[in-house]
C-alpha cells in the first residue's frame, strides 16, 4: 500500500503550485491515473483525504481520470486500445505486443483554484 506516500506527493505538488499562484485556495486536483501505474484508485482517494488533513488543501477534491492502456500494434502499424491488461495483444488482429503507449500515467494535470 504505497498510495499514501503518493497522495502526500500529490498534496505537496499541489501546494507548491498554489503558492506559485499567490496562495490560491485549491478546490480540486485533477489527476490522470493509468491502468498500469500500479496505483489503486480507491486507495488513493482515501489516502488523499488523509494526506490533506491539516494542510491548506484540506477539503479539496481529488478528481481522477482513469487512462486505459493503449498499445502499439506492429502489424496494424498504429495505436490500439487494449481489451484487457491480462492479454497484451492487438484487439483487432490479435498480434501480441509489449509496447505500451499509454496507461502508465500518474500525472497531476491541473488544479482548480479560487483566488
Amino acid at each position: 500500500m504505497h498510495e499514501l506516500s503518493i497522495a502526500m506527493s500529490i498534496v505537496e505538488m499541489a501546494q507548491e503550485e498554489s503558492e506559485r499562484c499567490g496562495q490560491a485556495q485549491v478546490l480540486a486536483v485533477h489527476l490522470r491515473l493509468g491502468q498500469l501505474s500500479g496505483v489503486v484508485k480507491e486507495a488513493l482517494l482515501s489516502s488523499y483525504e488523509m494526506a490533506c488533513e491539516a494542510t491548506p488543501l484540506e477539503g479539496s477534491q481529488l478528481l481522477i481520470e482513469e487512462v486505459p492502456v493503449e498499445v502499439f500494434c506492429p502489424k496494424c502499424d498504429g495505436p490500439r486500445a487494449l481489451g484487457s491488461i491480462q492479454w497484451f495483444c492487438c484487439p483487432e488482429c490479435g498480434t501480441p505486443t509489449p509496447e505500451v503507449l499509454h496507461g502508465k500515467e500518474l500525472e497531476v494535470v491541473a488544479l482548480e483554484i479560487e483566488e
Partner: peptide, 10 residues
C-alpha cells in the same frame, strides 16, 4: 474557480 494547468508526473 479557475483551472491552472500543471502537467507534472507525481
Amino acid at each position: 474557480p479557475r483551472l491552472v494547468e500543471v502537467r507534472k508526473n507525481v
